[in-house]
Design a protein around this nucleic acid. Sequence first.
DNA 1: CTAAACCGCTATAAATTTTGTAGCGATCCG
DNA 2: CGGATCGCTACAAAATTTATAGCGGTTTAG
Lengths: 115, 115
Amino acid sequence: MTKIPIPGQPVRGSRRGAPIMALFDLLGRHWAMGVLWTLSEIGPATFRTLQERCETISPGALNTRLKELQAAGFVHKVEGGYAATASGRRLYELLHPLGEFSKEWALHMNSNDNT
Amino acid sequence: MTKIPIPGQPVRGSRRGAPIMALFDLLGRHWAMGVLWTLSEIGPATFRTLQERCETISPGALNTRLKELQAAGFVHKVEGGYAATASGRRLYELLHPLGEFSKEWALHMNSNDNT
DNA sequence: CTAAACCGCTATAAATTTTGTAGCGATCCG
DNA sequence: CGGATCGCTACAAAATTTATAGCGGTTTAG
């Protein structure tokens, strides 16, 4: 079905499967970070809730991403739907600073200086 | 040509263009983070060098990504090719911890415990 | 000057991924 | 028994990505 990138095996960006490139291969798919982010912010959520929160994701895409994130160990099923695993929460925390960064970036984009 | 996500305008994950979702829309495209990462690690590089370092990227993809990253203000042209802007370096720094994380993750993936 | 060797990048077609929409089978009320 | 959810599958259309060839320009060597 979906092919999930495994560190140590050829991935996008590294024929030898450099971990960072394997991770980028996984996260660099449409919606991957958005799903993890949303799931982390709202806590355990059902498939449909997640779908609504992501506003425009299609069920097929959501399902594919969820499977990949589960295979990677960042998400798992719990009572009440899906939730981030410890590892997933850790990843979310590392991604978290991007929230602030993105706001500054938004300012740049809507004016046009260069810092 | 390529449509780059603008915060404040509909993007994947947010009809109202939440900055973080706009950023994810941009970075969540095949190769986007890999290119920024590679460029940041090797410093200013020519198109062809970048292409080699990315190992398996096609020139079309590289060119598209470079244009997007430039439009977003993360990359610009310099003597000697392309380089990360101040903003791009900042983003790279935020992404940097993922390097370590990915190594731990690689261990998880190749054994199978759960931390 | 000529030719080989790069360079940035475009062209194009095939392959893959993502979207959008419909809806099935299962549960859970009342 | 309806009616309202739910998780998720089906599937075709649209969009993105890949792979490969190669053009026109510049540099280097002879």
